[in-house]
Every structure is written in C-alpha cells, then in structure tokens.
C-alpha cells in the first residue's frame, strides 16, 4: 500500500511536469526561438559603451548577472557556503587534531611528490586566471577558488595533512583568510554607498557603475585594462574565501578516524 503511494507520487510528479512541458508551460516552443525579453536586456546591457548609466561593463553576461544585476543573490549564496562550513566546524568542535613536526617520511613516493611540487604552482596560476578574468571570460571567483583548493588537496594526499599544517595552512589561519576574503566582498558591496555618503550623492548597496539617479560608481578601467568596477574585486575576494573554505573542509576530513573515535570515547567516559 505504502509502496504504491510512493510510486504514484513519482508517476504524478512526472505526469505533471510532462503536462506542463506539453502545454507550453516552459515556453511555447522548447527550446524557444529567441531569448526572453529580460535576457535580451541582460545581453545588451552587460557591456554597453553607448549607455553609460545602464551597464555592468562586463562582456561576460553571466558574471555581470551574478555579481552586478543580481549581486545580492551571490552575496547570500556565499553566506550559505560560509554557514555550511561553520556548521561543519561546529560539529567538529572539541575534536583536537594531533600536530606532528616530523613529516618527511610520510606520504607517497618521491616521484609523485616531485610532480606535485611542479603542478601545485600551475594549478594556482590557472585558478588565478580563471578568477581574475571572470568578468571577461567564463569563470569567476567561485570557480577559481574551487580550482585553487585542488592544490592543498593534492598536498594533503601526496605529502600528508601534517605537512600542509606545517606549511602554515592551519585551521585558524585559513579561517582568518576566509573571513578577510568575505569581509572584502562585504566592503565591496558597500563601496559605492560609502563613496556616495562621502560625496553626498545618492547611491545604493551593491552599486557598480553610475545610475541615472545615483551618479557614483567604481572605475571600470584601471589604465587600459577592463576591471568592470566591483566585479574584479568580488571575484578576487571570492577566490580567497572559497579556496580557504574548501581547504578547511579538507583538513577536517583529513583527521584520522581513529583519533576522533578515541576522543569521543574518552569524552563519553568522563560523563
């Protein structure tokens, strides 16, 4: 009986979705012949030198939506990721990881270690290019940060967790780095407003380029290179925050299971 109900729900879910598609609920034509009007606005005004008060000054339409048109979403998306890591850290509260200084003998063979030494630098370089060109080409802060986090993950696997910690990438340091990155994002979100307050001109939270009713904005160019105002800073800080966040997670998952179980057992005996 219960199994039947479950099956029925799944079937009805698929039926409803199929009906919606069939009756044109996802667009009269799937896929549509042209993009929707709102999407056309985004495409036209993402990088538009002919309308200086209605543009994000970024040729990458997705990045301009992510960090400018709908920047608020992305700030809180970052907050969600941050809170998830805080929740995970809170679960590991009181679990102390052993620290070792003698770590040369740990890890995989010298061949792998040498290769890793070379590739780590390349990974970081690729990550930086993904993040810092996010406003020009596909990519962005989160993608760059996630790529950069592969480097510490490799070190963790090839050399050992203790080696990574001895490099200075300890939990507290990473958390501080992460907070600095996130605060950078927050400050960038408020930057135009702060400029506006000082210049006594109207301005908005998350403002990037000047608007008709708020004539302040951040410079779109530094010298000759396009930085799209706030977008470059957002991507830059996001990369740090994301890379540090992922590394904290890897460090937590890298604590040997036996150590944790021993500590939990000791705690249980105390109570």
């Amino acid at each position: 009986m219960r199994r039947l109900l479950g099956l029925l729900v799944i079937v009805l879910f698929i039926t409803l979705f199929a009906l919606v598609i069939a009756s044109g609920g996802l667009g009269y034509e799937v896929p549509p012949l042209r993009v929707r009007e709102l999407a056309r606005q985004f495409l036209i005004y993402a990088y538009n030198p002919f309308n200086t008060t209605f543009t994000a000054k970024s040729p990458e339409a997705v990045t301009s939506i992510v960090w400018d048109f709908r920047g608020l979403d992305t700030l809180f998306e970052t907050l969600v990721f941050y809170l998830a890591i805080i929740g995970a850290l809170s679960l590991y509260r009181g679990v102390e990881s052993e620290r070792r200084t003698e770590v040369i003998s740990l890890g995989l063979s010298p061949i792998v270690k040498t290769v890793t030494k070379v590739t780590t630098g390349i990974i970081i370089a690729v990550a930086a290019s993904i993040a810092l060109h996010g406003h020009l080409t596909p990519g962005g802060g989160f993608q760059g940060g996630a790529t950069a986090a592969v480097a510490p993950l490799l070190i963790l696997i090839v050399f050992s967790k203790y080696f990574l910690e001895n490099l200075g990438l300890r939990k507290n340091v990473l958390l501080a780095l992460r907070s600095i990155g996130l605060l950078g994002i927050g400050m960038t979100a408020f930057s135009a407003l702060i400029v506006g307050l000082m210049a006594n001109s109207p301005a908005y939270v998350f403002q990037n380029q000047p608007k008709p009713d708020a004539p302040v904005g951040l410079p779109a160019y530094i010298g000759d290179s396009l930085i799209s105002g706030t977008l470059w800073f957002f991507n830059f800080f996001e990369m740090f925050a994301v890379a540090a966040g992922f590394t904290v997670i890897f460090l937590l998952l890298g604590i040997p299971e036996g150590e944790i179980l021993k500590q939990l057992k000791e705690e249980a005996e105390e109570h």
Partner: peptide, 15 residues
Amino acid sequence: AITPLLAISSFSIPL
C-alpha cells in the same frame, strides 16, 4: 543595508 550588514557581522566573527 539590514541583511548585508547582518551578513558582514556574521562573516567577521571567526576573525
């Protein structure tokens, strides 16, 4: 400013 401010104040606690 309410929600971004709350988010920033939450960001700064680990620091």
